[in-house]
């Protein structure tokens, strides 16, 4: 976010002739996505006479994205621009783990467990977390969700672990 041109990072895998690394890498990634989409839709039927097959539109847009990605990459070489923004691992990591934990525990363990676990894991994502208040808020929020979703809104959510229901 704070990357300003002129402040070169000490080590960079991007070659020197790339003057706008943000665009350059972005363009290459788009091209990769396009190639992947083209590969994934390669087994689909193409044009039949003048009518579209299932694979025509995906291929059309795949090639379009490939071209656009290439253009952006070229722009990244010929224009001046900011360096790659710095990535932090802590926030993304713990938030992702929290989401995955929720996804894997909601069915077998029920909402109360899943929500608590997701809350506490996500809280690890910030260095500012203080555990006593976090615990209190986690309990309150879980209780609130347990009342709101199944009762107030009538959504079919299972609250307790499956083994406790049987």
């Amino acid at each position: 976010m704070n990357a300003t041109p002129g402040h070169a990072p000490v080590k960079s895998i991007i070659p020197k002739w790339v003057r706008n690394p943000q665009e350059f890498v972005g363009g290459i990634a788009l091209m990769a996505i396009a190639v992947f989409a083209l590969w994934a839709s390669s087994d689909l039927q193409g044009m039949r006479g003048f009518s579209f097959g299932a694979g025509t539109a995906p291929r059309m847009f795949g090639f379009l994205l490939l071209g656009l990605g290439a253009l952006i990459t070229v722009v990244g070489v010929v224009t001046e621009g900011p360096h790659l923004a710095k990535y932090h691992w802590r926030g993304p990591f713990f938030v992702t783990v929290a989401i995955l934990t929720f996804a894997f525990t909601i069915r077998p363990m029920g909402m109360i467990f899943a929500a608590m676990a997701a809350f506490l894991i996500a809280a690890c994502g910030s260095p500012e977390t203080r555990w006593t208040e976090t615990l209190i808020v986690a309990v309150c929020l879980t209780a609130f969700c347990a009342l709101l979703f199944p009762y107030a809104l009538g959504l079919p959510l299972q609250l307790l672990p499956t083994f406790m229901i049987r």
């Binding site: 929290a98 989401i99 996804a103 909601i106 997701a118 929020l141």
Partner: peptide, 18 residues
């Protein structure tokens, strides 16, 4: 924010799941 963001994560998770 340190209390808010985990709550948002949980709320979004339940929302998507439902």
């Amino acid at each position: 924010y340190r209390l808010m963001f985990p709550s948002i994560v949980v709320f979004c998770c339940i929302g998507i799941y439902s």
